[in-house]
Design a protein around this nucleic acid. Structure first.
Lengths: 360, 360
DNA sequence: TCGGTATGAGAAATCGTTTTTTCTAATTGA
DNA sequence: TCAATTAGAAAAAACGATTTCTCATACCGA
């Protein structure tokens, strides 16, 4: 089972050259006859030679390895980011260590030290909450660090989703569909994103539009509907929810009281959490934060940094996009919104190019 | 920022010894005065020396790195397994490469090759379905392989959850609570686990107990209730569902038709998918597959194998455990079932020791 | 024909450890 | 007292690549 591994010296011997020449031949460096180069390549191919990354790392001082640090144990947010990172790096031969540290700073230090020992070329820090930091200090590390979907110290390189823009999309969509009376049912005020979204929502829906703060649960969605419908005042015909779970609660509550969706009321969610958004009745139109694209960009950045390129520090905001299902009615216009499923797979960048706008 | 890394030679110089001696001092090998050893340790501590894992790996032929391969991109099953693996290995200084390959065999080969290049000490293969294999050939690899929560070729080392035992737990629990008339609403017959669970269920509930096959969705849970209630025949007073989503559909449907849970009917789910099980009304009593424990065991096994120990091939089944919430009524007895939340954190092993029973 | 310059390829140094071998001095035994 | 051990530590080899030096040989112009 454990078959002998082929070394470069084996290739060299078969090709009848020195290891030095063999190395140069395979790396397209050095000078030699094209015939010699080809002979080495043939030998390497025949033997199925693959260079020992340890040896290569030792001399080149690059391990072709990066670490992804997260406290999002059950991975709603981390996994799409991870998928993007991995996708951006695998073609360069870079592999990703995933380290889940919960919220344990001791564990965090252990994992960071382990990564450093393994001479990762860079570390990407990510989390489950955009306005909180991991309980580890990543400043003054001997490797570059990129923060993705998490809060970061000033002067660092950060990627986040553009919550305000996402909220803008959602509210505008409701308006476009002819809804006049919008409400926003969202999470706790202690979340920074909750404020960002609420402001963006009000900028579109009107400054006296109702915003209800609660927690992130379905139950809260239920309660919010009860408040909106039973407490008098004009009832909304469009509801923008802070996440898909709340939206689900809202939809269930509306159905229970016989309010028709999307005929009477349109509902938009946030997160495009496939498993939730597709299971609601009707399927939920929602905002996708394009976390996979965010991960891809994080991968590209850490790669550039590890190659010694310099990257402008600051916060880069990645646009969210609207995913249209059935909870709003209306058909997607030809422009921005995407129809139906594509959750994390598509590029989902609204603007051309890489779609990032440096900011704050 | 990129501070100079300390080498062993620095430590040696400070301690006034040769690198050979320094190495031996830190590794508790070789012969020397205790005073010398201590002097080296002090120097290492003072300089905060951490050995270069690449160099170490090169000479020792162990990278202290393992790969986790999965096709479960959005990680319901993989993440708990990963958490367990990581937990079992971090104390040994072993880090984990996570490679998500979707169902793309080309991508799979690329990732496996990348891991092999990096000289991983072993590979753990896992997936989203216990009776399917990843689209990559892991036989004849130069490193050990452990299969966890996935199908595997004959003669390999495999860890799976004991679905039959889990189903047995669920059905027995319903019987213990005095339910007489059980039904099982589960997934497609094409899943091997569906059969295993159905058989175990019937062994407890009676061989003519109703089993309804469908898909894994909430919608199917709704439909199944309609079938059970509207098609005549005696209505069940206990329903065991194939997963938590189905259970959720069942609970919603029962509530909609005014059937009281748990007063009139008890419902048990499967998976203990926290986010789902806790959001149902009432919160769902369900079966936990103890995937984190499974991951831990996979980690231990791959570690043993990478240290050259031999491990008996075969399928090892890990017991599931009942997590009691409110959807069945009744109080948990003092023995096996766990009350309330602890989803993946607790050890969850029913039997003592490592709780594994080698099997077929 | 001779000095100077490409050219192709091998020799050797290097990366930072671990491990084996060698060396020196001290201790032991007869 | 002198060889034989032995303890302690240094020197050197190894791991498997990359990269820098070095060295023939061929080619060029004068």
């Amino acid at each position: 089972m454990p078959k002998e591994r082929i070394r470069l010296s084996d290739v060299a011997r078969i090709a009848g050259v020195s290891v030095a020449t063999a190395s140069k031949a395979l790396n397209e460096t050095g000078r030699m006859t094209e015939e010699t180069r080809q002979r080495v390549k043939d030998a390497a191919a025949k033997l199925d030679f693959r260079p020992n990354a340890m040896a290569r790392a030792l001399v080149s001082n690059r391990s072709f390895t990066v670490g992804l640090l997260t406290n999002d144990t059950y991975g709603r947010f981390t996994l799409p980011v991870m998928a993007g990172v991995s996708e951006a790096l695998i073609d360069e031969g870079v592999s990703v260590f995933l380290c889940s540290i919960e919220d344990d700073s001791t564990l965090g230090k252990i994992h960071v030290d382990a990564m450093l020992d393994k001479r990762v070329d860079g570390i990407i820090s990510t989390g489950k909450r955009i306005d909180r930091r991991l309980p580890v200090d990543l400043s003054n590390l001997p490797v570059p660090v990129v923060y993705a979907f998490t809060d970061a110290p000033p002067g660092s390189i950060t990627l986040v989703s553009d919550d305000a823009q996402g909220a803008h999309e959602a509210a505008s969509w409701l308006i476009e569909l002819g809804r006049k009376n919008l409400a926003h049912v969202t999470g706790p005020e202690s979340f920074a994103t909750v404020h960002d979204r609420a402001s963006a929502f009000r900028a579109v829906a009107g400054h006296d539009a109702k915003v209800l703060y609660g927690n992130w649960s379905e139950t809260w969605g239920h309660e919010a509907v009860a408040m909106l419908w039973d407490e008098g005042g004009t009832q909304p015909d469009g509801i923008f929810c802070g996440n898909d779970q709340i939206a689900r609660g809202v939809l269930d509550a509306l159905r229970e009281r016989g309010v028709k969706v999307p005929e009477d009321v349109s509902v938009v969610g946030f997160d495009n959490w496939e498993i939730m958004a597709a299971a609601t009745r009707p399927p939920l139109t929602t905002i996708d934060m394009n976390l996979k694209a965010l991960g891809r960009e994080a991968g590209r950045l850490i790669l550039a940094l590890s190659e010694g390129k310099t990257v402008e520090p600051g916060i880069r905001k990645l646009p969210c996009s609207l995913v249209v299902r059935d909870s709003c009615g209306g058909a997607p216009p030809k422009s921005s919104p995407r129809k139906g499923t594509p959750p994390h797979g598509a590029t989902g960048m609204a603007a051309g190019g890489d779609g990032f706008a440096p900011a704050g």
